[in-house]
């Protein structure tokens, strides 16, 4: 059993080292070679379009269920569904917005990135990049990292908006909270630092998703089966890391008063 645990740990360390090396290499090529702007734009559009619908839908219903649960619970305790807007907006903007967006982006766009790069790896297309004067880091990884870093915070903003709308619909039409009360509960208690809290998380999740998905793609071996394994591995790693990182980020950001 210890051997098995050792193997898993070694594999994990090996992959972490490989991913760190890829990030270092991305920094090197970003500073010293041309930026693939066309690829960056194409990837940003693809990631945004791929993830927007699912992000909007998940956030809308998450906002709705948050309002329903909070409203019912508070109603049972105080006899009036107060502060529904505050609870919904705090939960979404500080936590669920970036987390849900991260999970959706990892599952949709992240998986697509790993599958695409992984297929290129097993069909020697990555080697072909070297033979034609560029390399996978410059041509594939950097534009995708840039695209994730751009689109994730934007998608998180949309996620927050849809979540708040969902909460509004339930609060107003199911719980009977006046619309202006719901909105004033948000504006009174939410500050710039709450948005900053969510934004920082979105950026860090974006960087992590881009790193994991690109690394899993370029390190794919073993044909179609290898592509499947890499893609599943990338999505599972991203989701687990999002949830784990979310706790530590919350603790660190809270320590800095954000």
């Amino acid at each position: 059993m210890f051997t098995a645990i050792g193997k898993v740990m070694m594999n994990w360390l090996d992959q972490t080292g490989g991913a760190a090396d890829m990030v270092r290499s991305a920094g090197f090529w970003l500073a010293r070679s041309r930026f693939e702007f066309k690829q960056f734009v194409l990837q940003s559009i693809t990631i945004g379009v791929d993830s927007f619908g699912v992000t909007a839908l998940t956030s809308l219903f998450t906002g709705m269920v948050l309002a329903l649960q909070a409203g019912n619970t508070i109603n049972n305790i105080f006899g009036d569904p107060i502060f529904v807007g505050t609870i919904v907006s705090f939960s979404l903007i500080r936590e669920l917005g970036p987390v849900l967006t991260g999970v959706v982006v990892a599952g949709r766009a992240g998986a697509a990135v790993t599958a695409h790069i992984g297929t290129m790896a097993v069909t020697e297309q990555l080697d072909a990049l070297y033979t034609l004067g560029t390399n996978p880091t410059q041509y594939l990884v950097i534009p995708r990292m840039g695209a994730f870093l751009l689109t994730m915070p934007v998608l998180t903003v949309f996620s927050n908006i849809f979540g708040v709308i969902g909460g509004y619909l339930v609060a107003v039409y199911a719980l009977g909270v006046p619309g202006e009360v719901y909105l004033s509960d948000i504006t009174t208690f939410m500050g710039a630092k709450d948005f900053m809290h969510g934004f920082i998380k979105a950026f860090i999740f974006a960087f992590m998703i881009a790193t994991v998905c690109c690394y899993k793609g370029v390190s794919t071996r073993g044909g179609a089966e290898g592509v499947g394994k890499s893609t599943t591995g990338a999505v599972v790693t991203c989701i687990v890391l999002i949830l784990v990182l979310d706790y530590f980020l919350t603790a660190i950001l809270a320590a800095f008063g954000i």
Partner: peptide, 24 residues
């Protein structure tokens, strides 16, 4: 050095077994 390595590769062209054409 990555740039010198690129210059080394510049000497060669490589025809891959399955073509390795970019399918996108």
């Amino acid at each position: 050095n990555p740039f010198r390595l690129a210059a080394v590769r510049r000497h060669f062209g490589y025809l891959f077994q399955e073509g390795a054409l970019f399918d996108s």
